[in-house]
Write a protein that binds this DNA or RNA. Structure first.
Lengths: 214, 214
DNA sequence: GAATTAAATGAACGGTCGTTTTATTCTCTG
DNA sequence: CAGAGAATAAAACGACCGTTCATTTAATTC
């Protein structure tokens, strides 16, 4: 046999990306073989090389598109006004929403950077840094205007990123909480973490469930 | 040749563990070959099988000992008094100190669980859960006594764990900040995150430092 | 409907993998 | 100082790896 009936390059390429994300997220990049990937797609391993020159370039494409999507998502969600509270609020919600919606590529992005060649790694880290810079700028604005009380902008940014990215480690969409509820709780935690002034216009107040005063 | 002069089983076994942690942390479990590990130790690959029955059992041993060490470390650091503030404080500092001191095994523990067989994975997750349960209990105590203001104990515990474990992703001991300074800042962030009452005995105040550059 | 292009096959390549087997050398015990 | 057993080397095992190649078939074009 050779070309199969109904075969379509675009559809196959999309299927390869999706299957690769799933397999790499589950078993890891090194543990996924090209034969295994081919089987998941429903194609011989050799056919994969019509779409990607080699295995690492496939990984790089997946990582690059994840980062491009993340940056584009933030560009769309970023508020027009330069308000630290509103900006941080939007950042946290967008970050959690994006990553929960793309669990597979998020896992790959978090775990498989070490499998990239130095050149490709640099390219990804550059994108990641430009994204994280957005958060640092928000925090710096908030610290300067007095909206936030922050010890160290760099450390706080890393802490927030780790915290809100960590959602995907345990979150399952079909369980106790919806994405919105989780995002809401994480939003409240973030605001307390940065020492945000309690009352701020346009932001939903943290829903205190346990005992509290203030 | 065969047995080399000065060879010693115990020393070789320790060298294998250390080398394996280093190589797995850097390249990943799947990417590390037994020949590569042997070379790092200064031994033929076949000699490794005197100490570990196979590759996965080696990984499992490393993970198990990491978790045992973490739990033992917390047992030693846990305050006698049932004080939420003091307990949380000790938990954060111990967690960061332990993980920074063992970067390699921490990386392995965070990234390589997926390479374990189901039975071994269950054993590790059981240990991890019992450790995290300690934090949840502290948070629950604090919420009940009014020391903390917490929306959701489970979510807050995960957020804190992710945040303080994330230190090892970026922390380098020879740079700007010492472990103690980092732990201090993370401690302050954690306390704000859980809505700890502002004034509490025995807690050092957060050291305000100028905001860092991008 | 023939020619061309796109898509995929199946076999094969040289290597490397984890692991086993066998043989040898060294250290330790009595 | 002889013997036992621990520690290692060296070679080999079959399986699988990423990748290439010539070929075949399906879809498209003229």
């Amino acid at each position: 046999m050779a070309r199969t009936t109904g075969s379509d390059g675009e559809r196959t390429e999309a299927a390869i990306r999706e299957a690769a994300l799933k397999l790499i997220a589950r078993h890891g990049y090194e543990a996924m073989s090209m034969r295994q990937l081919g089987e998941e797609v429903g194609v011989q391993a050799a056919a994969l090389y019509r779409y990607f020159p080699n295995k690492e370039e496939l990984l790089f494409t997946l990582l690059r598109e994840h980062m491009e999507g993340l940056i584009a998502s933030w560009d769309a969600a970023r508020p027009a006004a330069r308000d630290p509270f509103g900006s941080l609020s939007a950042f946290v919600r967008n970050h959690i929403g994006f990553h929960v919606a793309r669990r597979h590529s998020t896992h790959v992005s978090n775990l498989e950077l070490r499998s990239l060649s130095p050149a490709n790694l640099t390219a990804i880290l550059r994108m990641r840094n430009s994204y994280e810079k957005e958060l640092r700028q928000i925090l710096r604005d908030g610290a300067e205007t007095g909206a936030f009380a922050i010890d160290d902008v760099g450390l706080t940014a890393m802490a927030i990123i780790q915290m809100i990215t960590g959602v995907i480690v345990w979150f399952r969409p079909d369980e106790r909480l919806s994405v919105e509820e989780v995002a809401e709780t994480y939003h409240a935690m973030t605001m307390r973490l940065v020492g945000a002034a309690e009352i701020s216009a346009g932001a939903s107040p943290p829903a205190r469930r346990a005992t509290s005063e203030n």
